[in-house]
Design a protein around this nucleic acid. Structure first.
Lengths: 102, 102
DNA sequence: CTTATTAATCGTAATATTGCAATATATAGA
DNA sequence: TCTATATATTGCAATATTACGATTAATAAG
């Protein structure tokens, strides 16, 4: 029903469409890397909830998690972050200057 | 619980997080302006469904609708499109190059 | 081996989203 | 005024999302 591009764009936007996931990404960037417990303390949602949001971010491959002892170290997947940035920029930078606007 | 910025970003992303709404935006850009019926014919969802998606896009003020006889002419709100682009670019262009990644 | 720590998963309740048929509203034209 | 056209709104069913307590799994430390 929709094009590959439309589905891809929407899928990315959907994952970014929750403030907790934005907060998680911003905190990971700020701290360079962190564990789930850091995010629970920082954001103030329950551990299973944070874990669930991390799972969605991992599914999008915008972050990656590395097991380190009993904890998991999360950081940005820089290559995919750049790809996602490129996909979004391409869409948002469409020149829609239009004198025929109603 | 979340910052103004986080909520704003998530709100924008959430609206963009459905392929029908991406398709609507792309079609409006391509055709410069169109009416609801054009989108129903183009996209293949029922008229109330398209109308509902248009409402969400209007709420975000990324599009605007002008009454023209019995129909409503929709086009991109260029100023707000640019603002949304700026908000997203600022977030996605954060330099997260990081050698301390786990 | 036992216990503590950390994160993931399961189960579930509350809420939100999506899609559409039916209906309402509003304007244009005969 | 009556009818046709275009869109919005309502109501509702199906599905998805969000949040969290309880539990599980996996590793580390004693």
């Amino acid at each position: 029903m929709f094009s590959e591009e439309q589905n891809k764009l929407a899928k990315i936007a959907k994952v970014l469409g929750h403030p907790a996931r934005i907060a998680i990404l911003q905190y990971i960037i700020k701290s360079q890397s962190c564990i789930c417990g850091d995010l629970v303390a920082e954001i103030g949602l329950a551990q299973p909830t944070i874990s669930q949001h991390l799972k969605e971010l991992k599914n999008l491959e915008i972050i990656k998690g590395t097991i380190s002892g009993t904890s998991v170290c999360y950081c940005i997947n820089q290559d995919n972050w750049k790809k996602i940035n490129a996909i979004f920029s391409e869409f948002l930078n469409i020149n829609n200057n239009n004198l025929n606007c109603c």
